[in-house]
Write a protein that binds this DNA or RNA. Structure first.
Lengths: 269, 269
DNA sequence: CGCTCCCTTGAAGCTATTCAAGTTGAGTGG
DNA sequence: CCACTCAACTTGAATAGCTTCAAGGGAGCG
């Protein structure tokens, strides 16, 4: 019994059977949402984090003038704001873009999982840091990439993230986003996005439209946009080309890892 | 024995004397850097995190075409990449902008502090989440704010962050950034930044130039830029009404400030 | 004194926005 | 099945915002 969320965490820390079972229990209750519904609203302080099991969602903010800024996409396997209970309140909203299947998890449960299961704790940390890294990449993109490269880069990112959980392994996977959503992601007007996308289509770098984009040749799109997946930190623990360092986990074998972090006194409380 | 880093963490979790002493010991070794030196270089996997005790530093990326994108500023009291040892390798560099006093902390020490001292653990988490929140705000700004409002908003943020650790309580505090640095922060050309800044100067919203900016009236600048400090999550744990947060530091006199944040149980020292 | 870094200004041109008016396609009810 | 509707997409034209190139000015420092 597993799901894409658990699969994703498995990429990030060596979870044992007990870890997987605990996560499976935590995500066993599921809910369905239609497209366009808010899971979390700006200003609230929710009691649950949500795991997206199917569908696409996004984190966004509405500016005083009514314009929208999309800050992140949540694809199947992603959790939203697993950590947010530490902060006072949400400063953005989260909304479904397609019909979604989600698993709500009480923050209490997350805290307990993190406290008693070091590997889950590590995997959650990893997720937060990857979120931050993606945010940095987007900031670079909005600031310093041309609009065509930025949109192409974004498609590469989403496909790569989907592939990392076993989706989008062939080129027929449809990314269900409208041009307006892409515009609010890239900080552009929807009219301009439309023109850029037709150019990309003419160059055979993307295909589709109307809430369904496909990429015929991801390698070409990556080359075009200068996409380097390093910032997604996808490579499993243990595969690290850099020289050995005193900092710990990346070079560690599973045994080293457990020896170091599996002891119960590491997480008091 | 305390410093701005410890002071900042005290705002974020109720640290006891032992916590403070442990942090003081961890940051007791200090180093001096000239302006323009890299503390951490892209692609490396450093052994130390660095706490900025004096001076300004920034996190940045150089794009393939040679342009720079600044992703974050580190002001006194900030730590850089306290958590980075979990990830494979750095995907950006960190450089001093002014001469800096920094305290290097081995990642081992950070791990131990986090493991054995729950309040420090909580405060570090908080720091990471605030960093992420700032990144989101910047992304919104680059995408959806006009260039004058964006730069004004940025000045508000930096001043507010400085005030939260007791710096910049009056208007004479100089923000030591060049126009090129501001341009790489806002994703603009330095020529355009120059023109926007002269406009802001004409409107008496900012003063100075040449690596030294001051804000004569932070309230006016906040109103102009639509700055809401909520995303900095400065209010102490437990106090989280919106009204209170927006009110807090910006208009505060020094006495208000000390009354609120200077109480001895808040700064055990 | 002369160097360097930072700032300033002008002009030309590109990029992106805004406004406005269609078109297309999927879904809905008759 | 067809008309109707709505959201998504498309296109054009005018213009604002921003960049680039280029040249020059001013402050601080050895």
């Amino acid at each position: 019994m597993t799901n894409l969320f658990i699969q994703k965490l498995c990429l990030r820390a060596p979870l044992c059977d007990a870890d997987v079972n605990a996560l499976a229990a935590a995500t066993s209750r599921i809910q369905h949402y239609d497209a366009g519904q808010d899971l979390i609203t700006e200003g609230s302080k929710p009691d649950f984090a949500y795991i997206i099991l199917e569908g696409f969602a996004c984190r966004y903010r509405i500016m005083p003038d009514g314009s929208r800024s999309i800050l992140a996409y949540l694809v199947p396997g992603d959790g939203c704001d697993l950590h947010a209970s530490i902060l006072n309140r949400m400063v953005h909203s989260i909304s479904t873009l397609t019909p979604c299947t989600v698993a709500p998890i009480p923050y209490r449960t997350i805290k307990e999982l993190a406290a008693y299961r070091p590997n889950i704790y590590l995997a959650l940390w990893w997720s937060v840091l990857v979120d931050e890294s993606i945010l940095q990449e987007w900031l670079v993109g909005v600031g310093r990439r041309s609009s065509d490269k930025q949109l192409a880069h974004f498609f590469c990112e989403v496909l790569t993230r989907l592939q990392s959980v076993g989706l989008a392994l062939d080129t027929s996977y449809r990314i269900p986003l409208t041009q307006s959503e892409l515009a609010d992601t890239a900080g552009l007007s929807h009219v301009h996005v439309q023109r850029v996308l037709t150019d990309l289509r003419k160059a055979k770098l993307i295909e589709g439209g109307r809430k369904g984009w496909t990429v015929p040749d991801l390698t070409r799109l990556r080359a075009f946009s200068g996409f380097d997946p390093g910032y997604l930190h996808l490579s499993p623990l243990g595969e690290n080309s850099k020289a050995e360092t005193t900092a710990d986990l990346s070079n560690a074998t599973r045994e080293d890892f457990l020896k170091k972090f599996g002891s119960s006194d590491f997480f008091p409380d």
